[in-house]
């Protein structure tokens, strides 16, 4: 639904312009973010350093020696009036997950809270159709929306330290495959051997914002094989 208050252009310090398309996750705002992100990739505004897409808004980071908020706002409005051709949906990635007990430290708690069996929790997680909405928190942490309703849980009251890299964690409608060992307040369902940080200099991150993800189930032997071969 069109909303007269959006898009909104909010200056941030001397080097940022936050372009807001809405204020709730799950509405049409994210499509606006993706369209502007594509437009600015195709035709950067003068002085643009980088763009940072998120759920409902996008930050344009610029060099204040070259431009200012007013000029960037004008240029962004012009890009929005003449968008590049709509892209097809993002690329689809299949990401393997091992749900075995030693990797699924919170399965019992999720079973407890949802009233589902462990197999039903896994089936629900596998049934989700996920889309990468943004990266955040730590390098390569891709926030994927699409966790099915029956296994949506609020985050834990406090983060837990030392959640290993590769953990598949959920909170609310979101899922992340972690990339480094960090604290997390989300629920750990399994572990993936997928390398989100690819170590390929031409494509250092597996996903782009807007890509889609489908999870597939693997057993421990597959996990070890996929973890070991440097894939």
């Amino acid at each position: 639904m069109p909303d007269a208050t959006f898009p909104r252009f909010v200056p941030v310090a001397d080097c940022g312009l936050l372009v807001e398309f809405g204020d709730t996750v799950g509405g049409p705002a994210h499509a606006g973010v993706l369209a502007l992100d594509r437009a600015l990739a195709a035709r950067p505004v003068p002085g643009q350093r980088e763009t940072v897409p998120a759920y409902v808004n996008l930050m344009v980071v610029f060099d204040p020696a070259e431009t200012d908020h007013a000029a960037v706002t004008r240029a962004v409005r012009e890009r929005m009036a003449h968008p590049p051709e709509a892209r097809s949906t993002g690329r689809l990635h299949e990401v393997p997950v091992c749900y075995e007990a030693e990797f699924a430290r919170d399965m019992a708690a999720v079973v407890d809270q949802t009233g589902l069996s462990a197999e039903a929790v896994i089936a629900a997680h596998l049934a989700g159709e996920y889309e990468v909405h943004l990266y955040g928190f730590a390098p390569g942490y891709a926030y994927m929306a699409g966790v099915p309703e029956p296994i949506r849980l609020p985050r834990k009251p406090a983060p837990v330290r030392g959640i290993p890299a590769g953990s598949v964690i959920i909170a609310g409608p979101q899922c992340i495959v972690t990339t480094v060992t960090m604290p997390a307040g989300w629920w750990v369902l399994g572990r993936s051997p997928a390398r989100i940080l690819t170590s390929d200099p031409d494509r250092p991150f597996l996903f782009d914002v807007g890509d889609r993800v489908r999870f597939t189930r693997i057993d421990r032997a597959d996990f070890d094989r996929l973890s070991g071969d440097g894939a």
Partner: peptide, 28 residues
Amino acid sequence: PSEPILRGSIQVAGDGAPAVLLADHQTT
């Protein structure tokens, strides 16, 4: 909704205490 953060942001958590985000700030 989680949104982009720049260095120097003064964010306020639920307890009302401001924090200034610096060189290793989270990105959102």
